[in-house]
């Protein structure tokens, strides 16, 4: 494709800064805070190996004597001080949270990506083709929507594990989790994309392309897809929050990632066992992190939805 980007126009950054979305962002304190919190947690998770004061997964660096150290207090045996305390095995809670968020976010992003690719593809085909393909896909979607997503993920997870040899289960667990959550969420994308594609395909710019015989696949990808991405982005953002919570729920129930690689959900499950014995921090801090992450991402999604909807502006 020839490049018609002109040189004499404001650069991409200036244009983005001046856009309606950017303006709406700058004028929404809630969105700014939500974005800051999400970015902070995401960055902390990405840079966990460099940021974490301890490596909680290196058994050599663990000292059982350090176990149950309360936050900001010296350990009674070793005198070590941990910001957020330690768990029963003497792991630094702050470090486990950083690594845990890393796993949670990885599962969340991958699940959203999987659901998005699947949902967009099927939605585009259903919306553009119509007919029996459309009816079939949408009936499947309807049926799937009657189950709570988490139940479905649980089911898929269980079935998938049945097919995987026990020796590989732990290694595959995270991928099975991603597929399970992704499969439970694709319907949202498919339905929105289908609706938008049906609207777009009847627009005259699509007809203009059909008149000159542009291949349907090309019409879908080059013409229609860019025009349905707005709502998809909104769902993806809110979907990320949902996926993180779904992962946490599954891990909390003990069917998610193995405890050798704890996610936020696993940490909460572990911490829950110590709540009544007084070691509240093992539960509290991972829970707060999960809450802050899910809430801020969700708020960001809400803001994006309003900003993209011209009628609410």
């Amino acid at each position: 494709m020839t490049d018609f980007t002109p040189e004499d126009r404001p650069n991409a950054f200036a244009r983005a800064w001046d856009s309606d979305i950017a303006w709406s962002f700058r004028h929404s304190p809630l969105a700014i805070v939500a974005a800051a919190v999400s970015l902070l947690i995401i960055a902390a998770a990405i840079f966990a190996p460099w940021l974490a004061p301890h490596d909680p997964f290196n058994p050599a660096s663990l000292n059982l004597m350090d176990g149950f150290t309360p936050p900001m207090q010296p350990n009674q045996f070793t005198g070590n001080v941990y910001w957020l305390g330690t768990d029963n095995q003497g792991r630094d809670v702050f470090s486990t949270i950083l690594y845990g968020a890393r796993i949670s976010l990885f599962v969340g992003f991958m699940a959203v990506l999987f659901a998005m690719v699947l949902g967009i593809t099927l939605g585009l085909i259903a919306g553009y083709r119509g007919g029996w393909i459309d009816s079939l896909l949408m009936r499947i979607a309807d049926v799937q929507l009657t189950f709570p997503a988490i139940l479905l993920a649980l089911l898929i997870f269980g079935v998938a594990r049945g097919f995987i040899p026990p020796s590989m289960r732990d290694a595959m667990a995270i991928w099975v989790l991603i597929v399970a959550i992704g499969l439970s969420e694709w319907v949202n994308y498919a339905r929105v994309v289908r609706g938008a594609a049906m609207v777009e395909k009847s627009k005259e710019y699509v007809q203009a392309a059909r008149v000159i015989g542009v291949h349907p696949a090309r019409i879908l990808i080059r013409h229609i897809l860019p025009n349905v991405m707005g709502p998809v982005l909104v769902i993806a953002t809110i979907g990320l929050a949902l996926a993180i919570i779904a992962e946490a729920t599954l891990s909390f129930l003990g069917v998610g990632v193995p405890s050798t690689q704890p996610s936020l959900g696993t940490l909460i499950r572990i911490g829950q066992g110590f709540l009544f014995s007084g070691e509240w921090w093992i539960l509290l801090f991972p829970s707060l992190t999960l809450l802050a992450l899910a809430l801020s991402v969700n708020l960001l999604g809400d803001w994006l939805r309003d900003a993209l909807n011209p009628r609410l502006r």
Partner: peptide
């Protein structure tokens, strides 16, 4: 509706 809002005019004509 007859021009794709996401395309530059040059690409549309080309």
């Amino acid at each position: 509706a007859s021009l794709n809002p996401r395309w530059r005019v040059g690409d549309i004509i080309a």
